[in-house]
């Protein structure tokens, strides 16, 4: 994790880039809308890379025409959870199921403490590895 500057959580698209500006987020939303994908907003305060199921913020947004509406919802979510991870997902329904096509983080906690690596000695000189986010010592909702 030392190579990942600032211990930032990396999940989904653009997560190795600097944080997206609202303009860039709008452009990505527009791309999704142009492909007629439905958007939804999710949040979590568990930064483990394998934590893929986040909490939904409100309903998924179908029949949207303009990015401004989605951005309004994102800002609403930021106001409610200023120190959580927030991501935008776009789902494609053409295959009969809503399959995710895009997912990118639009909000991060101010300070991300990073991950703790646990090495486990196993039988036969085997080595097991586990990473645990430092922030997960505290219960949900009090982490950041």
């Amino acid at each position: 994790m030392m190579t990942n500057y600032g211990n930032r959580m990396t999940q989904g698209q653009f997560s190795f880039l600097p944080d997206l500006t609202d303009e860039e987020i709008s452009a990505q939303i527009k791309y999704a809308l142009d492909n007629s994908w439905a958007l939804n907003i999710e949040y979590t305060d568990d930064p483990h890379p394998r934590n893929t199921y986040w909490e939904m913020y409100g309903m998924p947004m179908f029949d949207m025409k303009d990015p401004a509406g989605v951005l309004m919802e994102i800002n609403e979510c930021r106001k409610t959870f200023p120190n959580h991870y927030i991501r935008v997902m776009a789902s494609d329904a053409t295959r009969g199921v809503e399959s995710p096509k895009m997912s990118y983080i639009v909000n991060r906690p101010e300070k991300e403490p990073g991950y703790h690596l646990i090495r486990e000695e196993r039988d036969g000189r085997c080595q097991g590895y586990t990473i645990v986010p430092y922030s997960n010592d505290k219960p949900e909702g009090e982490r950041y």
């Binding site: 309903m59 947004m61 029949d63 949207m64 025409k65 303009d66 990015p67 401004a68 509406g69 989605v70 309004m72 919802e73 609403e76």
Partner: peptide
Amino acid sequence: TKDVIKKAMGG
């Protein structure tokens, strides 16, 4: 109300 506004955005 917000839902309606979201849908009408840009129009």
